[in-house]
Amino acid sequence: MAQFVDWDLAAATAGALAKTGPAVSYEEATQVVSDLRALTDEAAGHVAAYTGLSSQVEVPPVRVVDRKDWAKVNIAGLQRVIGPLVARLSEGKEPGPLADAIGSRVTGVQAGTVLAYLSGRVLGQYEVFSGEPGQLLLNAPNIVEVERKIDADPRDFRLWVCLHEVTHRTQFTSVPWMRGYFLGEVQAFVDASQGGEHMLERMRRGVATLSDALSNPESRVSMLDVVQTPGQKAVLDRLTALMTLLEGHAEFVMDGVGPEVIPSVESIRAKFNRRRESGNPLEKAMRRVLGIEVKMRQYAEGRKFVHGVHERVGMDGFNKIFESPLTLPRLEELGDPDAWVTRVHH
């Protein structure tokens, strides 16, 4: 079968290009890992008590990673998802060994370049592609680097990050259908394309777009240019609504729990928000192309929606949102909590 990405080359590229982490001694590094594991457990108790949600499956222990390991885990997850999709899109057609080798190696370098960039930005992630039920990753070098840059109390900042990421783990492990629904929507996006070969080429071009933005901050192209059909737009609307809800819910929980357990939370939030909004031209270009700017808006819009629903129907009423895919908010409801409450509660 044709190989869309040379995954080994992607991993090697990501490892070679990943930024060097902050300077820490072996003892400091060991302490950071120990702290993050303990604070993940502490955060889990706070999140469960605040949200009323509890995991319905056995939860794997948190995995504290460095930047190269983060890239490797994500490459493995992408390989697991993209491989079957490429097989379906190509319908068994072979492009020829030379075209396959050249194309997959080019895409491998491009994908590795993008993952190297992201590996230096992501603080934590609930990774769902690699296997059931998913795994919580905490990127230790980035957490230490940011807490130093904003001069935050280390324990407070680490617990603050853990609250956000553990909320994502809770969303996927306390709602039995969530992971399958998300992966199904990714599949639906591909199924809605206008032909396999054309979609494969657009996917390649999308990866190239991300890579090019690293060397050309003036690029105005975004990943939304991969969207080509009304069917894909409908799927993207559902995915956008889902991700806005999940990010907003995590922000809402952070802000709800934080003041009770993190003494310096107000200072951390203010400094972190300023850092989110700043950035050099290259970083701003990558945020736009990767859709991170959209994600930053999702934090604010989603939190406002969750707050609005909670204000109207309380936490138990809000949690009806997780009853089934039919009770998830529609894109147009995110700006109108009353519309969701009317549809689901009446």
Score class of each variant (00 low, 15 high):
residue 137 L to E: 13
residue 164 H to Y: 07
residue 27 E to M: 09
residue 258 G to W: 04
residue 277 E to P: 00
residue 248 G to Q: 05
residue 167 T to K: 12
residue 262 I to H: 03
residue 118 L to N: 10
residue 41 D to L: 12
residue 329 P to V: 00
residue 273 N to C: 00
residue 29 A to L: 04
residue 327 T to D: 10
residue 90 S to I: 00
residue 55 S to H: 04
residue 154 P to W: 08
residue 61 P to G: 10
residue 281 P to A: 06
residue 94 E to G: 02
residue 304 K to W: 08
residue 259 P to E: 08
residue 20 T to C: 06
residue 6 D to K: 03
residue 113 T to K: 11
residue 323 E to W: 09
residue 225 D to H: 11
residue 134 G to C: 02
residue 251 E to V: 14
residue 189 F to C: 04
residue 256 G to H: 07
residue 211 S to Y: 06
residue 164 H to R: 03
residue 199 M to F: 14
residue 305 F to T: 04
residue 12 A to C: 02
residue 296 M to F: 13
residue 229 T to G: 05
residue 325 P to E: 05
residue 24 V to T: 10
residue 120 G to R: 02
residue 324 S to Q: 05
residue 298 Q to M: 13
residue 47 V to I: 08
residue 231 G to R: 07
residue 67 R to P: 03
residue 291 G to N: 07
residue 262 I to V: 13
residue 245 L to W: 04
residue 212 D to P: 00
residue 27 E to A: 14
residue 230 P to I: 02
residue 345 H to S: 09
residue 26 Y to E: 15
residue 158 R to A: 14
residue 121 R to L: 15
residue 15 G to I: 00
residue 116 A to F: 08
residue 159 L to K: 02
residue 269 R to W: 07
residue 88 R to N: 11
residue 225 D to N: 13
residue 179 R to H: 09
residue 236 L to V: 15
residue 331 L to A: 11
residue 220 R to F: 07
residue 145 E to M: 13
residue 260 E to D: 13
residue 309 V to A: 06
residue 339 A to M: 10
residue 173 T to Y: 06
residue 171 Q to G: 04
residue 183 L to W: 00
residue 169 R to A: 15
residue 174 S to G: 10
residue 289 V to D: 02
residue 91 E to N: 13
residue 160 W to V: 02
residue 26 Y to L: 11
residue 113 T to C: 06
residue 46 H to Y: 15
residue 5 V to A: 08
residue 254 M to H: 01
residue 219 S to I: 15
residue 230 P to M: 09
residue 119 S to F: 03
residue 36 L to K: 01
residue 116 A to W: 07
residue 63 R to C: 10
residue 190 V to E: 03
residue 175 V to C: 09
residue 132 E to R: 09
residue 94 E to S: 12
residue 232 Q to E: 10
residue 63 R to K: 10
residue 189 F to Y: 15
residue 80 R to Y: 11
residue 307 H to C: 02
residue 101 A to M: 11
residue 235 V to L: 07
residue 247 E to Y: 09
residue 14 A to R: 10
residue 22 P to R: 01
residue 164 H to I: 05
residue 91 E to F: 07
residue 7 W to L: 02
residue 242 L to N: 02
residue 219 S to A: 13
residue 75 I to E: 13
residue 176 P to L: 07
residue 60 P to N: 01
residue 5 V to C: 14
residue 65 V to Y: 08
residue 131 G to R: 04
residue 65 V to W: 00
residue 161 V to M: 06
residue 244 T to C: 07
residue 11 A to E: 12
residue 303 R to S: 12
residue 278 S to C: 03
residue 2 A to L: 14
residue 57 V to K: 00
residue 129 F to V: 01
residue 20 T to M: 14
residue 296 M to L: 15
residue 5 V to K: 11
residue 138 L to W: 00
residue 137 L to N: 10
residue 143 I to A: 12
residue 41 D to F: 04
residue 80 R to W: 07
residue 85 L to R: 13
residue 83 G to N: 09
residue 182 F to W: 14
residue 200 L to V: 08
residue 238 R to V: 06
